[in-house]
């Protein structure tokens, strides 16, 4: 029994030290913020409680613009699934949709690259869709991303836009709140809490689920602000007018 008593002393001592340590507000070592057990333990699975919005039952829409428009949809890998459905909307309603999928991208990458300004300059969109944050769900410096969100918004300048939040599969460390607080509820679609069928990687929604996700965004958008004509298309998916794919190292 003696070896087990020693083992227990070791385990409990370590547990107590780590627990006390986690009560300290912020410990830094050579400028690096030390991860405590507290912050490690607080990442629990979120409660998936929000259902998809049903496009067909939306009545309280805001009057929309009926002219054919140029749409620009940029963001991380989540754009891949969403843009197929938005492509169908665009085609059905006479819009031209340009899509830029930057795999592995983050608010930081977009803000520092200046690519958004470049694409806005090239395609001259009337309306911008952004889907970013999926690669920053668990970053430890979520609040430091605020400046990147501001930078992205400033690149869009006066163009109307909406920002589709990342599809959380667990609670995030604050990126959703950072984006929402910077751009406001009217422009930010909170995807957190929606129930998605995930692809094999466990992160990206399946094609079907991505379509439902985009339908929900459109349905929500119609109630929030002036928007391009967005009648429900007959076909489920369609390729955007043009798609640009960027790799994580671009």
């Amino acid at each position: 029994m003696r070896p087990y008593i020693k083992l227990l002393i070791l385990l409990f001592s370590a547990f107590i030290v780590m627990t006390v340590f986690s009560e300290l507000s912020e410990v830094r070592l050579f400028g690096h913020k030390i991860v405590t057990m507290q912050s490690f333990l607080t990442h629990d699975t979120i409660n998936d409680s929000v259902e998809f919005c049903d496009v067909d039952t939306t009545n309280d829409v805001i009057a929309n613009d009926t002219l054919p428009r140029v749409l620009l949809f940029v963001g991380d890998s989540m754009v891949e699934g969403l843009s197929s459905r938005l492509g169908a909307y665009a085609y059905h309603n006479g819009h031209k949709l340009y899509t830029v999928i930057w795999y592995g991208s983050s608010t930081e990458k977009w803000a520092e690259s200046g690519k958004l300004s470049m694409y806005i300059e090239s395609y001259k969109p009337d309306y911008v869709f952004i889907c970013l944050g999926g690669n920053e769900l668990f970053v430890r410096n979520a609040d430091e991303r605020r400046k990147y969100v501001r930078s992205i918004v400033s690149e869009i300048d006066s163009l109307p836009f909406i920002w589709i939040g990342p599809p959380n599969w667990k609670d995030d460390t604050g990126i959703n709140e950072v984006i929402r607080s910077e751009i406001g509820d009217k422009r930010f679609f909170l995807s957190k809490g929606m129930r998605f069928d995930r692809a094999a990687d466990g992160m990206h929604p399946t094609e079907k689920s991505s379509c439902e996700w985009m339908d929900s965004v459109v349905c929500w958008m119609k109630r929030q602000m002036p928007h391009p004509k967005m009648e429900i298309p007959a076909e489920k998916v369609r390729k955007p007018y043009k798609t640009i794919v960027l790799t994580p190292d671009d």
Binding site: I9, L10, S13, I34, F40, F138
Partner: peptide
């Protein structure tokens, strides 16, 4: 000694916490 083992164990747990993804 036991106290050295405890320190080593804590260091390993801390290392694991630092590197562990939240998922």
């Amino acid at each position: 000694r036991l106290w050295i083992k405890i320190i080593v164990f804590i260091c390993v747990v801390q290392l694991v916490l630092e590197f562990s993804s939240s998922d």
